[in-house]
């Protein structure tokens, strides 16, 4: 009990007929970064909202920092910080005013609050923008302020609901580094939801894969990947010097093809299932006179884990969500396969 920051017990949320979160039992250890990975509508946000005391569970319960989320919601609130899906910022207030407002709600004495605001602004390199209205900021700048807003009360437990959604690659990696640093230096327990495999892989000590409200797998990223390593999926990075759209299309049409994604001019990231997958890929390219410069076998990713466990692709459902900037996937992550 002591080493757990969060313990859920059959935590369930129903919206009329829909079971958004379905009897979830997880423990989040103190000081770890715990990832909730799942496609749109999996129930990640609903789960976070219950653990933040923003919504009641319909069944089951959970403790956060040892306090019951329903009966001791006041106590829970003192321990937590929330970066939700929607930014909690007022556009017509300056960065400083926004932070001050929320600081005041936590009864932080003025001197301490000012000190903390300045410190946090420096950490995210926003000290120059203190007196500018949030409405004039770019999404990345807003999100930096939004993240430090959640840290004003120095929370023991921080919830991050898709913190890099809609950010460009640079902001994304800065936010990720910031999260990592926060966890290492302050020992803050972090619960992070994402539908990006790479993010979960990079940041999380343990990942719970959630699908249709149920936790379908829970382990360290390494263990999860090991689980599918023996599975029958081939992932390769092929460099075809004379790559044509026809070739890509043909690879997609292969009977055992799972996903084909082009990266740059000549690289294809291909995943296919079955024993003959590797041969099929090579044959398909050769038949169209493709010149293969190199083939690298890729380590299984969390995406493969998801596929392995649920038997379905995660990406196709996911991409419609990405809002402003498509680079949110970050370097190395792959955009969706079109169509079905």
């Amino acid at each position: 009990m002591d080493e757990n920051a969060i313990v859920t017990k059959d935590l369930t949320k129903r919206f009329k007929d829909l079971v958004a979160v379905d009897h979830v039992n997880i423990n989040v250890k103190k000081g770890e970064i715990f990832g909730l990975l799942g496609p749109n509508g999996a129930g990640k946000t609903t789960m976070i909202r219950m653990l933040c005391t923003l919504t009641y569970p319909t069944e089951g319960t959970a403790t956060v920092g040892g306090y019951d989320i329903v009966k001791e919601d006041g106590k829970v609130r003192e321990l937590i910080g929330l970066v939700s899906e929607k930014m909690i910022m007022y556009d017509r207030l300056t960065a400083y005013e926004n932070l001050k407002l929320f600081g005041k709600l936590y009864n932080i004495p003025k001197a301490t609050l000012d000190e903390r605001i300045n410190h946090l602004l420096k950490l995210v390199h926003m000290e120059k923008w203190t007196k500018s209205q949030i409405g004039t900021f770019s999404t990345g700048m807003k999100q930096r302020i939004n993240v430090i807003r959640a840290l004003l009360n120095v929370p023991e437990i921080l919830y991050l609901d898709e913190p890099t959604l809609g950010l460009d690659p640079q902001s994304t990696s800065e936010i990720r580094e910031f999260i990592k640093k926060l966890n290492e230096e302050n020992d803050t327990t972090i619960i992070l939801t994402t539908h990006q495999m790479l993010e979960a892989d990079m940041l999380c000590d343990r990942v719970g894969i959630i699908d249709k409200g149920k936790i379908v797998a829970l382990d360290t990223p390494a263990n999860l990947k090991r689980m599918v390593a023996g599975g029958n999926v081939t992932s390769v990075d092929v460099n075809v010097t004379n790559l044509t759209p026809e070739m890509t299309a043909a690879l997609k049409d292969m009977r055992n093809s799972i996903s084909v994604v082009q990266e740059g001019e000549s690289h294809l990231l291909i995943r296919a299932s079955g024993d003959d997958a590797f041969d099929d890929i090579v044959d398909t390219i050769r038949q169209r006179n493709g010149k293969i410069a190199s083939i690298k076998s890729l380590e299984p990713s969390l995406e493969d884990v998801f596929l392995h466990i649920t038997g379905k692709e995660m990406r196709a459902e996911v991409t419609k969500k990405v809002k402003t900037y498509d680079g949110g996937h970050g370097p190395g992550s792959r955009p969706a396969r079109r169509g079905r």
Partner: peptide, 13 residues
């Protein structure tokens, strides 16, 4: 609707 209410609701007030 804008989600900013959550910022107040999640504070211990």
């Amino acid at each position: 609707e804008f989600g900013t209410l959550d910022g107040m609701m999640v504070a211990p007030i």
